[in-house]
Simulated assay, not measured.
Amino acid sequence: MKTKNFIPVLVLWGFFLNAQVGIKTNTPNSTLAVAGSLGADYKQISATTYSITATDHYLTYNGTGNATFTLPVIGTGTTSYTGRIYKIKNISTSGITLQASSGNTLRIDNTPVTSFVIPTGAYAEVVNNSNTTGGTWDLSFTVLPKPSNVDIYGVQLLVPPHAGGTAPVADWTNHTVTGYDTGTGTDAWWVISKASTTYAHTSAYSNASRMMLVYEYQGAPFNVTNMYPILTAGNNSSFPDVFTASFVSLANVSGKTRLTVSVSRIDFIGNNTVSGNNSNWTGTFLLNLLLARKLY
């Protein structure tokens, strides 16, 4: 007598009535509930032209040139792909043009497009929808590259009065004057020295009043490799004086970071004997410093 393997009708009936499947759980709370990790296909692409397949899921591009990734052609039945998700990460120094196949489109907003560029360091996710006219692939999620590859530090320093002004402040070296330092503790900047050059106004030429300033940071020295100072001179008083600041040097000296700057007054040169206005300035002004260092 032959023995037949069979599944009780009541069990089958219960399976179809309760269309929820659990993996490592006896109480699935969704159509498919997985009590554990989930793996999907991963592939790293270096070719500059790649046709995304039906079995792909997560793609990483690390090629050496601009690439073009083409999404599968959308069909019907088993090739309708509704709900299929592709994840694409660009770790190269070039761009990826993600394009739909002929006759298909990408839907970023209400206007379908044929392609989308994934820039360096960015990530994109697309999902197929059942819309065959308004965009067959939804660009459902994008992450742009890291906002910056630059480390930035900013501070506002003081520009002391000129040594040749009507109310002069004598030049100094070796931080013998402390009244123009800024900040506190390890975030303090000292004015180590200032050297003033007076104006020269003749029939042949005019030299603006200027000053060489050396500032020293009292905290841990900056890594000055690939560091670029950006300087702007500011006027924080009622005087009409206009200044320009030029970078001279940035270096670590005896465990401290030193910045040397040349500041010049550019709105007026000379001495107006009628008004008593001397272009060797007497006020205390501002120097805005931005240190930007390229990280990679």
Rank of each mutant, 00 (worst) to 15 (best):
F116E: 02
F243C: 08
F222T: 02
A200K: 12
I88A: 11
N277S: 06
G234Y: 05
N18E: 11
L71D: 06
T120N: 15
T55D: 14
T142C: 08
Y123C: 07
A188S: 09
P160W: 02
Y58R: 07
N277V: 13
I118Y: 09
D56T: 06
I74L: 14
T97Q: 15
A188H: 01
T260F: 00
T178V: 10
S254M: 08
Y123N: 11
L290H: 00
W281R: 09
P119F: 02
S51W: 00
D241R: 08
I74G: 05
I7G: 11
S30G: 13
S209E: 11
N174D: 15
N271G: 00
I74V: 15
W137T: 07
L71H: 10
P8F: 03
W190P: 00
N66P: 04
S275N: 09
S80K: 15
V117G: 05
P160I: 08
G75F: 10
N207M: 06
V143H: 00
A33P: 00
T133G: 03
A47L: 07
D56L: 05
I74H: 03
G22D: 05
I88Y: 09
T273Q: 13
A220Q: 14
D187S: 14
M227L: 15
L231E: 08
L59Q: 02
S130N: 15
G283P: 02
K2Q: 12
I88G: 12
L286N: 13
T136H: 10
G121F: 10
T232V: 09
T176W: 03
G185S: 08
S275H: 02
A251R: 12
K89S: 12
Y296L: 11
A188M: 10
T284Y: 01
T284V: 14
I85D: 10
L98A: 11
T132D: 13
N129Q: 09
D181L: 03
G283Y: 06
I152W: 00
A188C: 01
A67K: 06
P161G: 09
T68Y: 01
T53P: 01
L213C: 02
V253Y: 13
G276Q: 04
G36I: 01
F15E: 14
N235P: 04
T282N: 13
N226A: 12
K24D: 14
S193M: 05
F239M: 06
L144D: 13
W281D: 07
V34D: 00
N29V: 09
V11P: 01
Y199S: 10
Y199E: 07
T64I: 09
T70C: 06
Q218F: 01
M227F: 02
I88C: 13
F141W: 07
D41Q: 10
V248Q: 15
L259F: 02
F222N: 09
T202N: 11
L139H: 04
N110W: 09
T273G: 01
